[in-house]
Amino acid sequence: MDITSLPSLSDFFEGADQWGEVLALLPVLVLLELILSADNAVALAAIARSSRQPEREGLALNLGIGIALVLRIALIVVAQWVLQNAWVQLVAASYLVWLVVDHFSNRSGDDAESSEGNESDGLSRPFLNTVLLLAFTDLAFSIDSVAAAVAISDQIVLISTGAFIGIVALRFTSALFIRWLDLYPRLETAGFLAVAFVALRLIVHVVVPSLNQPDWLTLVVVLLLFAWGMSIRSKALDQDEGHAC
Rank of each mutant, 00 (worst) to 15 (best):
F164Y: 03
L90I: 13
N85L: 14
L132Y: 14
D238Q: 12
L34Y: 09
S231L: 11
V100K: 02
L158M: 06
S50H: 10
A151I: 13
S37D: 07
S51Y: 05
A236D: 15
F226K: 06
G109Y: 15
L36R: 04
V30K: 13
S153H: 11
L36A: 04
A43V: 06
A45E: 03
V150H: 09
K235L: 13
S174M: 08
Q53F: 00
V131A: 04
W216T: 11
C245D: 10
N85S: 14
D215T: 13
F104S: 10
S174C: 06
A163M: 05
S114R: 13
F177M: 14
E33H: 03
G20S: 08
S105W: 15
L31K: 11
I76M: 04
E119R: 11
S153R: 10
V207C: 03
W81G: 06
A244R: 14
V221F: 02
K235Q: 15
L71W: 04
I76H: 01
Y95I: 12
T130G: 02
D144L: 02
M1Y: 08
A74D: 13
L23F: 15
A175R: 11
A68N: 06
I152W: 07
E241A: 12
L181K: 01
S120P: 01
P214F: 13
P126K: 11
V82R: 09
R72S: 01
L181D: 05
R179D: 10
W19N: 01
A86T: 15
I67F: 02
C245I: 10
V221Y: 01
A227D: 07
